[in-house]
Design a protein around this nucleic acid. Structure first.
Lengths: 148, 148
DNA sequence: CTCTGTTACATTGTACACAACATAATGCCC
DNA sequence: GGGCATTATGTTGTGTACAATGTAACAGAG
């Protein structure tokens, strides 16, 4: 007896929410082998690319706030993946860098993107690009709207 | 110096992850007015449509496990949105139904879908449908892969 | 009727995610 | 150089998520 527009099956948000969780579930077995979670994995992706970053840069790049990133980095430090040091030039700023163990994981991670691509698209090459462009477009629109 | 395939910007997963969080952020102010979170909102969507459901049916429909749904329902019960009762025919089964207050929220929620649609797509009507179909396709592929 | 496996749900433990607040270092205005 | 807003990060509290485990109720085999 619900209003048509409120039916669960019509909600785009729910598809995005569901896809997000399916995706995390698909990554989990791969990331378990590296001993990291998904948010830790994307933190590593950033650090593999830029060598080191401040906490603030990581928050910005990943779109997460300090309440998420700060304890996440603490766990990664405990697990020996990253090291933290305060800048001499500004004692407020914490610079995060990879340990040898953190760097070494990059080799083990190399196979993940292509493996995940096949999980997401099977053999459909064009599907990936069309999903990417639609997602970019939608995120842009959302961010746009939020800023007003 | 990272491998090209491991750069953050190339990761489709990250776009989905980011979109998911942007979307939750966009919903938050609307749902705050109803006094519910997003997972509670989709639980209400289901109950508005089907009147009542067992815990298991909700887990299935929402794709969440009992460890998530069980405490979520407990909070909704405390907030006076749902009621729970055990079936006489099977004392293991818990039936969840809406309270008057839970039913009343449906009216207040009616404006949410169209409001969110404009946040997601601006004026672009076709964007919604193309995103929906790409998401459906991708979820199907992921679920397919997971089952093997 | 009893034993045993299964089912439905709840609980525990770990890890996000974010709002709100706390803290310490910096920069700047005078 | 003292006061003060700002900045960078950390902490607290609430609410997901999910794996693993617990528990009571049910369902059949013998």
């Amino acid at each position: 007896m619900a209003y048509e527009e409120l039916k669960l099956e019509h909600q785009l948000c729910f598809k995005i929410y569901a896809l997000h969780r399916e995706l995390m579930a698909a990554y989990r077995p791969l990331l378990d082998e590296l001993g990291v979670t998904y948010p830790q994995y994307i933190t590593l992706l950033y650090l593999w690319e830029y060598e080191e970053a401040t906490v603030g840069q990581l928050c910005n790049a990943l779109g997460l706030d300090t309440g998420t990133v700060s304890p996440l980095l603490k766990r990664m430090e405990v697990n020996g993946l990253v090291a933290k040091r305060r800048l001499v030039s500004d004692e407020r700023t914490v610079m995060v860098s990879l340990t040898e163990r953190g760097k070494a994981l990059e080799e083990e991670a190399r196979s993940i993107p292509s493996h995940m691509a096949s999980c997401l698209f099977g053999d459909d090459e064009t599907g990936a690009r069309s999903l990417a462009s639609v997602l970019d477009q939608t995120i842009r629109q959302l961010v746009e709207t939020r800023k007003q």
